[in-house]
Design a protein around this nucleic acid. Sequence first.
RNA 1: GCCCCAGUGGCGGAACGGUAGACGCGUCAGACUCAAAAUCUGAUAUCUGCAAGGGUGUGGGGGUUCGAGUCCCUCCUGGGGCACCA
Length: 866
Amino acid sequence: MQERYEHAAIEADAQAWWDGRRVFAATEDRSRPKYYCLSMFPYPSGRLHMGHVRNYTIGDVLARFMRMQGRNVLQPMGWDAFGLPAENAAMANGVPPARWTYDNIAYMKRQLKSLGLAIDWDREVTTCSPDYYRWNQWLFLRMLETGVAYKKTGVVNWDPVDQTVLANEQVIDGRGWRTGALVEKREIPMYYLRITQYADELLAALATLPGWPERVRTMQANWIGKSVGVRFGFPYELGGERRVLNVFTTRADTIMGVTFCAVAAEHPLAAHAARGNPALAAFIEECKQGTAMEAELAQQEKKGMPTGLFVTHPLTQQPVPVWVGNYVLMGYGEGAVMGVPAHDERDFHFARTYGLPIRQVIQKAGQSFADDAWQPWYGDVEGTTCIHSGKYDGLGHEQAVAAIAADLKVLGVGDTQVQWRLRDWGISRQRYWGCPIPIVHCAGCGDVPVPDDQLPVVLPDNLVPDGSGNPLGKTPAFVDCACPSCGKPARRETDTMDTFVDSSWYFLRYASADNARAAVDDRADYWLPVDQYIGGIEHAILHLLYSRFWTRVMRDLGLVKVDEPFQNLLTQGMVLNDIYFRKPATGRIVYFNPTEVEIKTDAAGQQAAFLKSDGAPVESGGIGTMSKSKNNGVDPQLLVEQFGADTARLFMMFAAPPEQSLEWSDQGVQGAYRFIRRLWKAVYEHVAAGAVPGTATMDALTGEQRTLRRQVHQTLVKVTDDLGRRRVFNTAVAAVMELMNALDKFTDTTAPGRWLRQEALEKVVLMLSPIVPHICHALWRELGHEGALIDERWPERDASALAQESVEIVLQVNGKLRGRIVVPVGASEADVKEAALADPAVMRWVEGKPIRKVIVVPGKLVNVVA
RNA sequence: GCCCCAGUGGCGGAACGGUAGACGCGUCAGACUCAAAAUCUGAUAUCUGCAAGGGUGUGGGGGUUCGAGUCCCUCCUGGGGCACCA
C-alpha cells in the first residue's frame, strides 16, 4: 500500500472502475424494493456552483446508503436548459443560446462526473432538446382538449423603448434594466393552466406528505390560500339598468360597518366611471403604470379616488360610495372589496387618508374603540361581538357570519363561498429560448392546435436575440406556415412556455427517457413516486406546487398512476460566502471574489480586506448567498483539483446540517482534507504492520478492548440512524471522527487488539463510503478484500458488543447539576433513588430542606426537588 | 407589506423537553526540525477561587414544566418566497 494519499489517482481509478462496469445503470428489477433518489436538475449556467455540489452530494450520500441497504436505486440527472440567462449571454457575446447552452452542458457534465456521483447517465434529459420538449407540446395539446389549458388576457411588464416584455428580474426600481425606461403594465392574450381546478386536492393532499418539511407544507397551504367567506352584491343602477357590484369577504360580521366600496383600477365599473371624468381616468392610468409584482404593489402607498358612483347596502339600503383603490387586486376575488375601516387595517388607513366615516360594529370586552389610531384588536375575530348592527347585536364572529350569510341568501344577493388565493398558471412567455407553444393563428379558423403528427414544433437554434422583442417574430421561416385546418397561409404562435413547465415533469421522463413514442411508459409506474427529492428551499412553493399539479393532470390523462410525485423532500440550505466590493464615486458597485481578496491584520488587531492585485482596500459586504451578482462564488473545479472530490464532499457534509445554510470556509476544507489523510494513514499503518491473525474470542477481551469495540458498534448505530432516519450527515461524520480519535489512542498490538483494529477500520470505511466513496473504494481493497466496496452491504451492529454493565446517572437538585453516580444497568428505580439521596453532594444541597419530590429518569438522571 | 425559517464560545456547529458547547476550525503552549511547513500532544464559554468548588450564560422580555437552547406569547435582527430568475 502506498504511504501517500494521492487523491487524483485514487479518484480517477475509482471512477474508471464504476464507469467501466456501469454499476449505476438502473434497471426495473421488480424483485427488489426500488429507491428513486432525485436531485433538482441544474440550469446549465456555465459552471457548477457550490449549491449544486451540496445538493448532489446529499443526494449521492442517500443513494449510496440506500444501495448498501439493498434497495434498487435510480439516481438520474439532466438539464433545465431553457431560460433567460442563455438569451442574456447571447446578447452579451453574440452567440446563439443553443450553442452557449450545449457548451455549458458539456462542461458541467465533466464537472459532475469528477464528483464521483452515482448517477445513471443513460437517462439524461435535456429540456431544450426536441426529444424532450415535443412532449411538453403534446401534453399542452391534451390539456387544451380537456380544458385544463385555456386562453385569456394577462398583465405583463412592458418596456416601451425596447418594445418588449420584461421579466420581473429585468425590472429594476420600476425601470427597464437595459433602457432605463419606466415600465408599464400591459394586458396581452396568454395561455393559462387551470391549476385552481386542483386547488382543493393540492391543499388536502398536503396531509398525505409527512415526509415533507412542515414549513414547506405550510408555505404551500398559505399559497393556495383557501378562505371561506361570503360573496354578495351591492345593487346599483346604471343608465336605467339594474346591476350588482359583487364583493367577497371573510368578515361578513362587519357588514354593518361598511362605509365605502373599493374596486381595482381594471374593474369595469372604474372604466365606466372614468368616462367623462378625466381626473379619474388619469388616476386609473397611473394605477396601470408601474410594476406587476406583488411585492412592490403591497408596499406602495395606498391611494384612491372616488368614482362618483354609489351602490346600495343590501341590508341597510343606505347609499355607499364607490372608490377606485390601488390596493385592490383585479386578480383576486371579484376585483372589488367592501370597505370596513373600523375593522380592517388597510381600510382604516384608507378611510383616514380620504376622510371617509369609520363606524365601529365589533366590540371586545375590556377594550375601547377610538377612530384616531388603529389597534390590533379591531381586526380580531375571537372574543368579539357585534354592536350597532341591529338584529345582529350580541352575536359572535361565527354566528354573525352565518346569520348575515343566511339573510343575504334569502334576499337573493349573496351566499357563502370558498375563495382561493391561488391563481391559474400563465405559461405564455414572449421569449425565444423556450418551448414553442404549438398553436397556429389562422385568419379563417382562429387558433388552431398543431396536429400531433406535426410535432414537435422545432425551435430554430441559430437565432441571437437583441433585446427588442422575441426574435421568433422576426423569423419568417418560423412564423409563416400553413393552417393545419384549411391549408391557407397562417401565422405560428411565437410565445414559448414558462420554463417551470419543463421542470414540472422531468422526473417522470427519466423513467422513460429513451421512449421516442410516448412521454412516459409503464416504467414510470415502477419508479414513481420519487422516494427522496432534494433541492433548494427557494423552490418550496412554485416548482413543487406546479409539479404536484402537473403530475395530477397526467394522472387524469391516464398517463401515470401516482397522485403525488415526491414522497420525501429535503430542502437544502443555501451556500454562503463573504462579500467584498468597491463603490466608485460614479458608476456601479464592483464586487470582488473572496479569492482575489487578502485579509490583513494591522498592529492594532484590526482586520481589513485588500485586493491582491493592487493592494488597495476593499469594503466588506458581510456574508450572503453565493451568486454571480455578488461575485462571491467558489468554483468547485479548483477545489476538486486541489483537494479532490472526497474532500469537497466531506466538507459539504460536515460543515452544517443539510437543511441549514452553509458558510464557506477555506479552513474548513483544510480540516476535511486533514481528516481524509489521517484516515489513509491509519489504514496504511495498520496494513504495514502485517497480516491480522485469525479471529478473536469476544469473551476473552480486556476491559479496554471491550470499550473500543463498544464504541465501534455505538458509532455504527448512530451513523445508521443519522443517515437513515434523521438525514443529518454532519453528526454522522463527527461520530466517525470521534471513533478515529479513540482508535488513535488504542495502541494495543496484541492479536485481539489488531483484530479489533481491523474490524474498526472496516466499519469506518463502510460507514464513510456514501460520503467519501473514492478513498473508501481504495481502502477497502487495501484492507484485504477481493470484492469491490460498491457491492458491499451496510454493516449490522453486534448487540453483544453494545452490552454494558453499569451506567452513569446525573444527579440534580432543583434542576441543577450537583453530581454523578454509577449504577448497574437495570438497577431498580428505588435503588437509584436511594443511591442518589445518599450521595454526599445531594445531601449537602438538600440539607435542612424537606424533600418534596424525586424524579427518576431511568438510565439518565435523578432530580431531587427540595 | 404578506407568508415561512433561523439566531448557542473567537468561528462552523452539537444537544431528538433531562449533563449546554460533541466534532471541526482558529488561537495558545509543548514535541519533532538548523529553521519553516507538515505532523503529533495538551489547553481553550465567562466570572470568582490556591484548589475543591461556586456564580453566570443559548438575540431581548414574559410564561408553561420537577427540569427549557428545545414548548407557548411578544419584540429585535438576519435569511428564503411573493406567481416572467431558476
